[in-house]
């Protein structure tokens, strides 16, 4: 209250405190949306890695053959050698039907698993998985 007994500043103050209180309530409530948002952040971390396996399998071993061809013809050591060159300093593990056949010196810390199906010369299908 000021000298003249004018209560308006105090009323404004109460009003602002009330509005502030409502904003705090609203902020706490919308925390639930933040929790839900966590999942999309995790999923989006892998999305940019999706094309990596296809790129790797289409990478040339020589003028006429690719890493994919090497896997098709069961030339896994050749495929691994070229994959290491292509991925350079990346940490990765390559596996075929669940059996690891190529990896960097240190394994990936938080890997995304990217899968692709590949035909083989003996009329079968195998699953190639790149963990990177």
């Amino acid at each position: 209250m000021n000298k003249k007994g004018d209560m308006r500043p105090a009323l404004y103050l109460f009003g602002i405190i009330g509005i502030g209180f409502l904003f705090i309530l609203f902020y706490i409530w919308q925390g639930a949306a933040y929790e839900a948002g966590k999942e999309i952040i995790i999923l989006s971390e892998d999305v940019h890695k999706y094309p990596m396996l296809t790129k790797l399998l289409n990478y040339d071993v020589d003028a006429d053959k690719t890493i994919g061809d090497a896997i098709v013809y069961d030339e896994l050591s050749r495929a691994c050698e070229t994959a290491k060159k292509m991925l350079d300093k990346e940490k990765f593990i390559l596996s075929l039907n669940g059996v690891d056949f190529c990896s960097s010196e240190k394994g990936p810390e938080k890997p995304a698993k990217i899968k692709a199906l590949i035909p083989t010369k003996d009329n079968k299908i195998k699953e190639v998985v790149l963990e990177i």
């Binding site: 209250m1 007994g5 004018d6 209560m7 308006r8 500043p9 105090a10 009323l11 404004y12 109460f14 009003g15 009330g18 509005i19």
Partner: peptide, 17 residues
């Protein structure tokens, strides 16, 4: 009582609220 009697301030602040 004085607070409630001061209608101008009361109306304005609580209208906003």
């Amino acid at each position: 009582r004085r607070l409630l009697r001061n209608k101008k301030g009361f109306n304005w602040a609580f209208l906003m609220l």
